[in-house]
């Protein structure tokens, strides 16, 4: 084949050469300066992230207790956790339930409100301010104190339902309802997910909606056929982010319910904290940490694997067209 002389391939080589040249100009080749600039992070990563991870993996096979040097005990921690640790099972169950409840509710609220806000109407910035406000105070103790008060026996929730003649209960002291109060707190703070959705919605071209309106598509149809697919990469991003965060829920459960009543809000991170800093069982806690990492990894992997069925990338569409 004499492809080299065909005009098409000549153009191709020229283009390749050009892109190569522009690539060189794009960044300066400078190993020493480059490594100097990233050295803070590199040291931080090696000493404060990678090395602790290796150590943590090692500790998880020992009986390390902070007071005494670690002794290698093989997989004993892990076998104890999986066969003879009801608190592990309970905390994992509570955490999974919490993730499965809070993440979808939070994202759905965020998306619906973002769609309401995605229009230039008067007072928009004020609405956005109010709706974002709860996210601002995020994971602070202050909010946890507020929640403890609101959902307590004398709290404002009971006053509202008392208005309808229903006898209130102490929501945070009831094993049936305690977890829900934490879910509500997290869902209430959907603001940051909402802002990300809003930015994504603004990128969707008006033309798509106009064209489908001409074709007579209903608003509902537009939502499912345009908004959701076009937004799906951002839904994926938010979903991964919120899932990872929710698995690590600590502060609110620690302050509002302290894991109770009867361990109904005993989050995984709370259990890990108790083992590590309550009983100083650093080895056991490290095993718990690695199991958490693996669980989060599996959850993230499932989301990413499933994403090929529901996430729609625009360049793919162009490629197929």
């Amino acid at each position: 084949m004499n492809a080299q002389h065909s005009p098409a391939s000549q153009a191709e080589t020229r283009r390749a050469r050009q892109s190569f040249r522009s690539k060189i100009k794009e960044r300066w080749e400078s190993p020493v300066a480059g490594y100097l600039f990233i050295s803070p992070w590199l040291i931080g990563f090696l000493v404060l992230t990678l090395w602790p991870m290796i150590l943590s993996a090692y500790y998880s096979f020992t009986d390390y207790s902070l007071l005494e040097a670690p002794n290698w005990i093989g997989t004993k921690n892990y076998s104890l956790i999986f066969t003879n640790d009801s608190l592990f099972a309970q905390s994992l169950k509570v955490t999974l339930l919490f993730v499965v409840l809070s993440v979808p509710l939070k994202l759905i609220s965020a998306l619906l409100v973002a769609m309401l806000l995605n229009k230039d109407i008067k007072g928009m910035s004020t609405y956005r301010l109010f709706i974002y406000f709860p996210s601002l105070i995020g994971t602070s103790i202050a909010v946890a104190i507020l929640w403890r008060n609101m959902f307590g026996a004398d709290g404002f929730i009971n006053q509202i339902i008392g208005f309808f003649g229903i006898q209130g209960i102490s929501w945070i002291n009831n094993p049936e309802t305690a977890l829900s109060t934490l879910v509500i707190l997290v869902v209430w703070q959907f603001g940051s997910s909402m802002v990300i959705f809003l930015a994504g919605l603004k990128q969707i071209s008006r033309d798509l909606y106009e064209a489908s309106s001409v074709d007579g598509a209903s608003k509902l149809k537009q939502f499912f056929n345009i908004t959701l697919p076009m937004l799906s990469p951002i839904i994926l991003f938010n979903l991964v982010l919120q899932t990872i965060n929710s698995f690590q829920m600590f502060t609110q459960a620690f302050i509002i319910t302290q894991g109770g009543p009867v361990n109904s809000t005993y989050m995984y991170a709370l259990y890990l904290y108790d083992r590590a800093f309550g009983r100083l069982q650093m080895g056991y806690a490290s095993s718990l940490a690695w199991i958490l990492l693996i669980i989060i990894g599996i959850a993230t992997a499932i989301i990413f694997l499933s994403s090929r069925y529901w996430v729609f990338y625009e360049h793919e569409r162009k490629g197929k067209a």
């Binding site: 992230t49 990872i244 940490a289 990492l293």
Partner: peptide, 14 residues
């Protein structure tokens, strides 16, 4: 994306 729990214990020890 790394959960901080994984480095928590050794960082504390360090």
């Amino acid at each position: 994306m790394l959960p901080s729990q994984v480095t928590l214990v050794p960082q504390y020890v360090m």
